[in-house]
């Protein structure tokens, strides 16, 4: 009885249907717990959390240096005053890329090459921001004080939008950025 204390010893092992279900459930849990290590070694999409501590001011200075060295143009977002004008930067294939999230833009815009692998250093200057690459729907966290390194290989061409998906104040839903893949 579920509401009264049990006075006789009650321990006995599972049997019958319950034992069958327990077996199925344990097997399924085993499959799921192998999937993550399997994908870590053999799968292509992983979040390893590679990161280094950094002062926001230092990260901004490094990003400006990166922009000055690789700038190829200017991007003006149609109808989004918050984003304003941002430089378009084309990093050398296989190189380091610096990307800042701040209220309320992703800085700078990037031009990448299909099939090349980049080390994208992601950080935030003021509040936490959410790197959400659309329409692919890939999501990573950008946190002030941390240089979050994503080793990323664009495999499809086109224009992609970075949406902010971590609440960062009143302009949050208008905070966007751009990645062009050629």
């Amino acid at each position: 009885m579920s509401l009264r204390p049990l006075t006789a010893p009650w321990f006995h092992g599972p049997a019958g249907h319950e034992k069958i279900w327990l077996g199925c459930a344990i097997l399924w849990c085993f499959v799921m717990s192998l999937m993550m290590p399997y994908w870590h070694f053999r799968g292509k999409q992983n979040s390893t959390g590679e990161a280094y501590t950094v002062k926001p001011a230092d990260f901004l200075a490094r990003t400006e240096k990166f922009v000055a060295a690789n700038r190829v143009g200017t991007y003006k977002h149609p109808g989004n005053a918050l984003l304003g004008e941002v430089p378009i930067v084309e990093p050398p294939p296989g190189g380091d890329v610096y990307l800042i999230g701040r209220m309320w833009q992703w800085y700078p815009a990037l031009r990448l090459r299909q099939g090349e692998t980049y080390r994208i250093h992601l950080s935030a200057l003021d509040l936490q921001h959410g790197f959400s690459l659309q329409p692919l729907n890939m999501n990573f966290q950008a946190v002030p004080g941390y240089d979050h390194v994503l080793t990323l290989t664009p495999t499809s061409k086109g224009e992609f939008t970075i949406v902010c998906n971590e609440f960062c104040g009143i302009g949050h839903s208008s905070m966007t950025g751009k990645i062009f893949v050629e």
Partner: peptide, 8 residues
């Protein structure tokens, strides 16, 4: 144990 960034 997070190491500081080198920012090369």
């Amino acid at each position: 144990f997070t190491k500081p960034a080198l920012l090369p």
